[in-house]
Write a protein that binds this DNA or RNA. Structure first.
Lengths: 344, 344
DNA sequence: ATGTTTCAATCATAAATATTGATAAATTCA
DNA sequence: TGAATTTATCAATATTTATGATTGAAACAT
């Protein structure tokens, strides 16, 4: 191999490589980046060392011998001209430069590591694997079915587990690595959690079609106030939200029935047992036949549903494929469109 | 080199690599990914070929000979087990699989290509280079100064060019590659442009302190209607926005003075020549002394300011460093925080 | 302290791999 | 058809990468 970095060539190229033909075209911008050695392997070693704490363990993880890692690190430091690790004590220590490099390199290395599987997934579909998604009942019932259908169509070999959990349990599953990610609504986002809202739904007032209020076009909070509400259990966010809004407006209200499950609530409302405020997510076309529906977005905030992940967790190919169905641009990045305003 | 991929080792390892020590620990999850050959170089070749259209040109760009590229491509296709390119005619053609791979690989290859420079930038600061940002006057005057200060502090060697342009010209500069990116507000985003809003400002009504309306706490559109407005030129979005809102509400209004520059407008208002509706961006602390200010967000939409880029363009290290100042997570990705709601 | 264990660095050597020049074959263009 | 351009093939060679053996240091246990 000619040392092609820096010294394009000596002999008159037959395969006209680089050196030639740099006259009429663009201002010699190409070839700005030479690749010394194999930065790729070096950085994989580096990232692995940082993750695992010692060269020896990194070597194990990468199926290499320890001297290899040592040499790669040295080459990396030499070529970058900085010290990355303090090899003090029994555990390595990142220098500031090392910290910076790790931050830059980790996503690349990880992206690289999963590229093959990602690609096979795209081309042939995933051949095996399992995906666990944590989600609330309403999400599973109304938001996910279509996505699950498309996912199963594309990746029939993947075992799909939908864990029906409420907020707290969902977060616990994420933290315990028992779920790849969660889908749902979040009122407040903990520090270690990343939330990417995708779908937005307006709050809806539902009433029996023969209810006195159903005649009115615009229904205000005052109008609602006298009637008994059917709401989900207090621990769920919808209840808390409704309560909050009425409290803030100092409007009296009373809960006639407290019962779990949007279907049940809709059924009860249709039967004339009360009225309710639900998220737009659970209003289907069919419901308009048996229920009167009014948008309440001027009084209650929108509910946003989205993907919930543990920060820093690297998603499996299976998980990434699903997230990509939910929202194409989210993981590939390079798509800076304004989020929000998708549903509604 | 022992074929370390797949066949961990034959002899009893001294440097205890992979094979050993897989008993008590985790369930042999490590080492799921082997690296055949040098996928890295193969993919760089592939991406380059796709970009440049022929193997020969790709070889030039990478300072390699043409056979090298040919072989790398073949190895890639063989190892992935798919055909990526149709080598028909004089120009290569991507297969579907090739398309998919290109999409997955390009960000990685590009990230890789600039990693070294990015790193040097982080560690030593950028040693040279030039950065051209297109922005409107108000952006340059109110939004950018602090950012520019911080950028110059960190990267004093970079030549910073701020092109003071209005919307159309800014887009033209982006498309002509005369600007690295633009910063500003966008009402509608063309298809080839990516916009990432970062800062959001409420619309503000400004009046002279002794104006009759200044006594009122809540000021409505009706209140404003009789008074003469001072607005920026019609071609600017603020004018169009104000006009639109009054039109929609079928509210009469009249423009007393049309004049460019927020500073001038503020000055005129302070002098009692009229009232105006401006973006919150240009209201500083000092202005509260000479102007009465009212938030008009219930009538006029928020204005969002953000980073405008040409889709697909890969930013220079200089540009990335700046964007990173504007909004840390935007480019590094891996940070799925809800955008929006930052300013105000 | 002293012996043991764990870890990283060094080095010569072995092996894999990448790159190349030469050349052939195919395609496009005039 | 002939010139030009492009890709594929191949054997030879240059280069990189990985390894085993070994050493010296630090941490740990007693």
């Amino acid at each position: 191999m000619k040392k092609h970095a820096g010294t394009p060539s000596k002999s008159k190229k037959i395969h006209r490589s680089a050196a030639k033909k740099r006259a009429g075209g663009e201002p010699a911008d190409a070839g700005r980046f030479y690749y010394k050695g194999n930065r790729h392997k070096q950085l994989r070693a580096f990232v692995s060392v940082v993750k695992l704490g010692t060269l020896t363990r990194a070597a194990e993880a990468l199926f290499l011998s320890q001297p290899t890692i040592s040499l790669q690190l040295q080459a990396l430091e030499r070529e970058l001209g900085v010290t990355l690790l303090e090899r003090r004590r029994r555990r390595i220590n990142l220098t500031d430069a090392g910290e910076a490099l790790y931050e830059l390199a980790r996503p690349l290395v990880e992206g690289w590591d999963t590229l093959d599987r990602d690609f096979q997934a795209r081309v042939k579909g995933l051949q095996a694997g399992r995906l666990t998604i944590a989600a609330g009942t309403s999400t599973i019932q109304y938001l996910l079915p279509e996505l699950v259908r498309r996912y199963r169509e594309r990746f029939p070999a993947v075992q799909l587990q939908l864990a029906n959990v409420t907020g707290k349990d969902g977060l616990a599953m994420l933290r315990a690595d028992e779920a790849d990610f969660a889908v749902g609504s979040m009122l407040d986002v903990p520090n270690d959690i990343a939330w990417a809202p995708v779908q937005h739904y307006d709050p809806m007032l539902i009433l029996p079609p023969d209810h006195p209020l159903a005649a009115k076009e615009k229904i205000t909070l005052e109008d609602i106030s006298p009637y008994g509400l059917i709401l989900p259990p207090q621990r769920l966010s919808t209840y808390r939200l409704v309560d909050l809004v009425f409290q803030q407006r100092q409007m009296p209200y009373h809960v006639a029935i407290e019962v779990g499950g949007w279907d049940v609530i809709k059924e009860y409302v249709a039967m004339g047992l009360g009225i309710s405020i639900v998220t737009g997510i659970c209003i289907t076309e069919a419901d308009h036949a048996r229920l009167a529906v009014r948008n309440m977005k001027q009084y209650f905030p929108q509910r946003s549903y989205g993907v919930v992940m543990r920060k820093g967790k690297f998603l499996s190919a299976e998980a990434r494929a699903f997230v990509d169905l939910i929202r194409p641009g989210l993981l590939t990045h390079r798509d800076y469109d304004e989020p929000g305003h998708s549903g509604r």
